[in-house]
């Protein structure tokens, strides 16, 4: 009599375990080769970038490396112009990220904490701007930049990036600021703080987690952009790294070690950001999915 319920509960326990813990032994047998295949392209390019050009010519692209050298990296950075391009990219990325997050935080603060008439419409229209296909902006943006006399300058690239990203950043920060507890605001108002002080001393510090996630995301987006750069820049020395990579491909045809080295250099900063801010990055990607 007493054993029946025990046995039953034991079976339920086993059932649970089969879902939560037990994996088929085949799991790793399949996953290990799949994962290796998945990272093989990166490993291969890294190996090619470290082989001297003479070795590539003599023994072919797919031979196992016998000697390693930084020749590809040196050529890419100096005569390939990648060093200058990296500098341009860093300037554009840092300035554009800071500017757009600052402006977005202002808009998000106004929309989330004050009864602005039509604020949901404003918010969604701003977000819609970020969802537009960039192609619809390109030709007029080039013309406007020419009209303002900033065409072919990093300034033009920065302002376009700021304008295009604002809607999304505002939307994310708005959601975050709205969820802040009302008490902190009431306390600040009782202390006689005006909007500027509430923004700077109460809201901004509390919004740090969201700002961190957006910084990670915006950095990779802006650093990785190609199409806006090709739209507003013409002089090669002003190119960010993405556009410079395409030139490198054209200028060093079949010098695969140089092309590979340039690609690796362009990949390092975003990979770095990703590994440092992995958690923030992933949470940033999930914004708007409202699972």
């Amino acid at each position: 009599m007493a054993t029946t319920p025990l046995r039953q509960s034991g079976r339920v326990q086993r059932g649970r375990r089969s879902i939560e813990h037990r994996r088929s032994p085949w799991f790793h047998v399949l996953m290990i080769p799949f994962t290796l295949l998945w990272i093989a392209p990166m490993v291969f390019v890294l190996v090619v970038s470290l082989r001297p050009f003479d070795d590539l010519i003599a023994r072919g692209l797919t031979a196992l490396p016998t000697t390693l050298s930084l020749e590809g990296f040196r050529t890419a950075l100096s005569s390939g112009g990648i060093a200058g391009a990296l500098r341009n990219s860093l300037i554009v990325t840092v300035v554009a990220v800071v500017l757009s997050l600052f402006l977005a935080s202002l808009a998000a603060f106004a929309l989330s904490r004050y009864r602005i008439p039509g604020r949901l419409v404003i918010l969604l229209v701003m977000l819609a701007g970020n969802l537009l296909p960039p192609q619809i902006l390109l030709i007029p943006v080039a013309k406007i930049a020419q009209g303002l006399g900033i065409y072919d300058s990093l300034t033009a690239l920065i302002v376009v990036q700021v304008g295009f990203g604002l809607g999304f950043y505002t939307f994310v920060l708005h959601g975050f600021m709205r969820a802040l507890p009302a008490e902190v605001f009431e306390a600040a108002v009782i202390d006689g703080a005006g909007p500027v002080r509430i923004y700077a001393q109460v809201v901004l510090p509390l919004t740090r987690p969201a700002l961190a996630a957006l910084t990670a995301l915006a950095t990779t987006w802006i650093f990785n952009d190609l199409i806006f750069a090709m739209t507003v820049l013409r002089t090669e020395t002003k190119f960010p790294i993405t556009a410079a990579l395409l030139n490198l491909q054209g200028g060093f045809v079949s010098q695969w070690n140089v092309v590979a080295a340039g690609s690796i250099i362009a990949a390092i900063p975003t990979a770095f950001v990703f590994f440092i801010f992995q958690k923030q990055f992933v949470s940033g990607l999930l914004v708007g999915t409202n699972k």
Binding site: L106, I122, M126, G129, L137, V141, I144, V159, V160, P195
Partner: peptide, 16 residues
């Protein structure tokens, strides 16, 4: 606070 970002986005996104 609101109109500054809105103006930037309007000028570089909606106007083009």
């Amino acid at each position: 606070f609101l109109l500054l970002p809105v103006a930037v986005e309007a000028f570089w996104v909606f106007w083009p």
